[in-house]
Amino acid sequence: MTTETAAGVRRRGRVALIDLVGDVNAAAADNLDHAWAEATADGPDAVVLNFAGTGYINSTGIALIVGLLAKARAGGLPIRAFGLSPHYREIFEITRLADFLAITGDEDSAVGAAPRDADSAMGTTGGTSYG
């Protein structure tokens, strides 16, 4: 069974949290983009992804997460995650997302974690020509 993704945004101090609910797949792209825009609109110190409510994540969903990591780099914005099941923690290790994303056990740890150095974050620019 497939469930549509919802991505709600809330704030704790200077940290923005994106609560992901449902499956993370190609259909989640627009909701994730809107949530990211809302979360980063006022220049937070960090963004935290909450996976506690997610169901199924497929490879396209993982690619969307890479896109968020990339967007974070432009401003050296730290990005962290919590709520991943042991299985999806393993997926994040296989795909080597875990190399670039601090994964914590709970929300307080994710919100309270010291900002990481900008070098380990990712970023985005637009363009369609190679070079």
Partner: peptide, 19 residues
């Protein structure tokens, strides 16, 4: 049940971790 279903599908569809 949905979470169990999602986990089962995911375990089947993703590769196991290899170093």
């Amino acid at each position: 049940a949905d979470i169990d279903d999602a986990t089962e599908r995911s375990t089947t569809n993703w590769a196991k971790k290899v170093d």
